[in-house]
Amino acid sequence: MATQTTDLGQAVGSAAKVGMPQLDFSTFSNQIFWLVITLVVIYSILSRIALPRISGALADRADRITNDLAGAEDLKSQALAAEEAYEKALADARAEAQNINGLMRAEIQGQLDEELAKADAQISARTKEAAAELAEIRNSAKANVKIVAKATAKEIVAAMGGTADAKTVTAAVTARMKG
């Protein structure tokens, strides 16, 4: 309540403030000034520092992900190649085993045949030998039978009281034995 003019000024001011401060045009220049400064500052912060930094981080991550995916693809193809090589080695080994198996079998078969032939030859030789021995035994037996027969015949004749002429006995025994 100092002077009437200030009272009036306050009344006008408060009336404007009580209504809508948004329509108080006296503050517009102030707000616009600070808004322009604010936007310029935000724009320079964003364009100079923030956005390049964030986009850099995002690009780095995207690069890393693509690289990792490519690496994974590489490793996968390597694993496939390794598996293929393994399969091939396995098949090779199997074939070789088959081969060796066949060779061994043939060798054993050869040895077996050889041994068999040897054994056959031995057996036939033995058989021949045995047959010869048998013939010899038979011959000697015949001779022995003749001697025994002659002696027996002589003894029988002597026992009968006759005298056995050696020549006659031999002839008779020989004749008998032939018959």
């Binding site: 808004l35 935000i42 912060i45 923030a50 956005l51 964030i54």
Partner: peptide, 16 residues
């Protein structure tokens, strides 16, 4: 407005 600048700075510059 100054506070909003600071908050934006904190989020987009310090945060990142």
């Amino acid at each position: 407005m100054g506070l909003s600048i600071l908050v934006i700075f904190a989020i987009l510059v310090l945060g990142a």
